[in-house]
């Protein structure tokens, strides 16, 4: 199965909407263990992404992801701007010139994005960050490839977002809490779950339509 540019654009629009809807919830999560701006900043950035990708026709996945990443870097601020942004910019670099991509290529994009996040954030899985959702989602897609069951993929990503509750933060603003960060969801992991949930929903709907 190929993922078309149209589907990717639809994914990003859906994700923007979802993040806007959950703006207050994400901000509340961040107020508990961070500085309380995650929902505000991320929804501002994704609204900009939506208006940028709606005003341009893309026929190149690499270009699309580059536009998404640089918009996030320029409009979000905080740590989440560079983190989400660099993943799209660096992860998307290999997809230059492609009009559609396979699931294997999409998971490759995620793996490259994860490497970029790790290097920028000097972070690893288990630090209670976005990586605790990105990494399991990437592995899941690599493992299941064309046979991915989208409903199960959604469950999988939420399961991992939920697991951040038990982790102790060692990177990012929640790290100031140390042990006291345990028991709270990581806001970045939750926003990542919304991002990937939107993707899996888009792909599931696309398959049904075909």
């Amino acid at each position: 199965m190929a993922i078309t540019i149209k589907q990717l654009v639809l994914w990003l629009e859906t994700a923007s909407q979802r993040i806007l809807q959950q703006k207050s919830y994400l901000t509340e999560l961040d107020q508990a263990i961070g500085d309380g701006d995650h929902g505000i900043n991320l929804s501002r950035g994704f609204q900009e992404v939506t208006s940028r990708i709606q005003s341009t026709e893309y026929d190149d996945v690499g270009q699309l992801f580059n536009a998404v990443g640089s918009t996030l870097i320029q409009k979000v601020g905080g740590a989440s701007g560079p983190i989400y942004g660099i993943a799209f910019v660096k992860g998307g670099a290999a997809l230059k010139g492609r009009q559609e991509i396979t699931i294997a290529e999409f998971s490759q994009f995620l793996h490259q994005g994860i490497a970029a996040i790790k290097s920028l954030g000097k972070s690893e899985e288990g630090n209670k960050t976005v990586l605790d959702v990105w990494a399991p989602v990437a592995s899941y897609l690599t493992e299941n490839g064309e046979n991915t069951d989208w409903a199960k993929a959604i469950d999988h990503c939420w399961e991992h977002a939920e697991k951040t509750k038990d982790l102790k933060a060692t990177k990012g603003r929640a790290s100031y809490l140390g042990e006291r960060s345990i028991g709270h969801l990581d806001p970045g992991a939750v926003s990542s779950a919304y991002l990937f949930e939107a993707l899996f929903q888009t792909l599931a709907d696309g398959n049904r339509a075909v």
């Binding site: 500085d35 309380g36 701006d37 505000i40 900043n41 870097i73 320029q74 409009k75 979000v76 601020g77 905080g78 740590a79 701007g81 560079p82």
Partner: peptide, 11 residues
């Protein structure tokens, strides 16, 4: 000057 309590962006 970034947004309130938010780091400014690289640009």
């Amino acid at each position: 000057c970034g947004e309130v309590f938010t780091s400014p962006t690289p640009d």
